[in-house]
Nucleic acid binder design. Structure first.
Lengths: 254, 254
DNA sequence: CAGTGGTCTAGACCACCAC
DNA sequence: TGGTGGTCTAGACCACTGC
């Protein structure tokens, strides 16, 4: 009998399932046994197993497909190097691929991004980030990003329409070196980056795309690019499952 | 009847309680009504209310005191500016106070930190971070940090004993300007910082100190200070409730 | 002792999926 | 139609708190 009383059963069951995954008894990409079976196996009610599975879901270890079963997730942790993504030499080395592609390729996976460009009124938050008035037109470059066809990040980028209209910034394919290079071409060279990171619950849209569980936290990186005259010209909001990413920063001090 | 079927009741109840907190009906620092009462009020079973409360706990909005009740948390979000914490002029301006003190004071709260210094063998992770062998002696400066006497961060710092032994780095009070200044005094000036950020579940020790719920995520910042000859001389592991902090980074690009 | 939340079971009904 | 997980209720017992 593996279940002992001092610790809650559902937590112990979660540990047991986690161990079974680690030991490959439940393989990556495979479904777990039905909750009813697990209940019998561990000598608890299905409700208790269900609760254990909730923990594993909130950790991002498994994903539920309604009516089918509970699947062990396969995506490993992705590292994002904030600084090197944006410096000139890295951009040149990466060519048209961009930082995200490099990060995913480094893990031996196949990256894919879908870009949708729209001209929309700025939300209050975006307006504040770009120092505009709410409702002013902005170009939104919405990116849906995948690794091995698994959604791993949602990253809408916002640019004042006054800058982007009629330029490659408003095109789906922004050309070699990514959009940071286009800003430079247009006389809006970004010289400074700020990023604010916070953890929050996913909203409904994010949950749907990222295949997230309800209680699963996401990382939100609010990225702003500034020109030499201290004007914000681009805001990019990276949203990704919190369990999936490690963020790296690296800088010199004086 | 506020409860509708398409969305799960416990989520709706969580929303209702959240709204009641926002509208000050349930004040900061006050206990919520008993779950039995809330069950009657919203027309659901206590189990469903309990589940709703779990959500609020995982968001860090409330905290349960066993046998007493469920209390609305009072600590607002704390911003941590990674770059300015470590540059010379900021350190001088802050004097003996240090970055953490400044961050908490900025919110109108009273900071407090308890420092415990110990000489211990390096764990595998710390050894790797400091480029030592597992088991080599290191000085651990464990910091328990509070805002208005509420625990908000656990931040052990590790320094090779070969550097810290017999120096102020191994003293409880490391003197003006914080330990970064002491490293400089000792000829180990830190010129580069790396930080790796990830989100994970809290371990038992962290849960206890940070008054965390089981499923509540923490931010772990693995901070390393490097000398000009590219040697890691200090590793600091900041662990804090994920909901409590916003991390700011700010840098120039070329 | 009464009040609080923590947890568990049994049983039920639902929505969604595959056959 | 049967299998899967999602959710809810009723009822119960426990541990911890404060009187």
């Amino acid at each position: 009998m593996p279940i002992e009383t001092p610790r809650s059963q559902y937590r112990q069951v979660a540990d047991l399932i986690r161990a079974a995954i680690d030991s490959k008894e439940f393989g990556l990409g495979d479904p777990l046994p039905p909750e009813q079976d697990l209940a019998g196996r561990y000598g608890v009610s299905r409700h208790t197993v269900n609760r254990a599975v909730q923990i594993l879901r909130s950790e991002g270890l498994v994903r539920v497909e309604r009516g089918k079963g509970t699947i062990v997730r396969e995506i490993p942790v992705i590292r994002r190097d904030a600084m090197s993504r944006y410096n000139q030499s890295t951009r040149e080395r990466q060519g048209a691929r961009g930082a995200f592609d490099a990060e995913i390729t480094a893990l031996g996976m196949t990256p894919r991004a879908e870009v949708t460009v729209e001209r929309i009124p700025a939300s209050a938050a975006v307006a504040e980030g770009l120092r505009l008035t709410e409702g002013e037109p902005v170009i939104r470059r919405m990116r849906h990003m995948y690794a091995n066809d698994v959604p791993v990040q949602l990253a809408p980028s916002y640019i004042p329409a006054s800058i982007a209209d009629g330029t490659p910034l408003a095109e789906q394919d922004s050309g070699p070196g990514g959009i940071v290079s286009r800003f430079a071409d247009l006389g809006h060279r970004q010289v400074r980056i700020t990023e604010s990171i916070r953890i929050r619950r996913a909203d409904a849209v994010e949950q749907a795309f990222l295949q997230l569980e309800d209680e699963q936290p996401v990382i939100e990186i609010w990225h702003t690019g500034w020109t030499a005259d201290d004007r914000p010209v681009e805001v990019c909001v990276h949203v990704a499952p919190a369990h999936l990413w490690i963020l790296d920063y690296d800088w010199s001090i004086s």
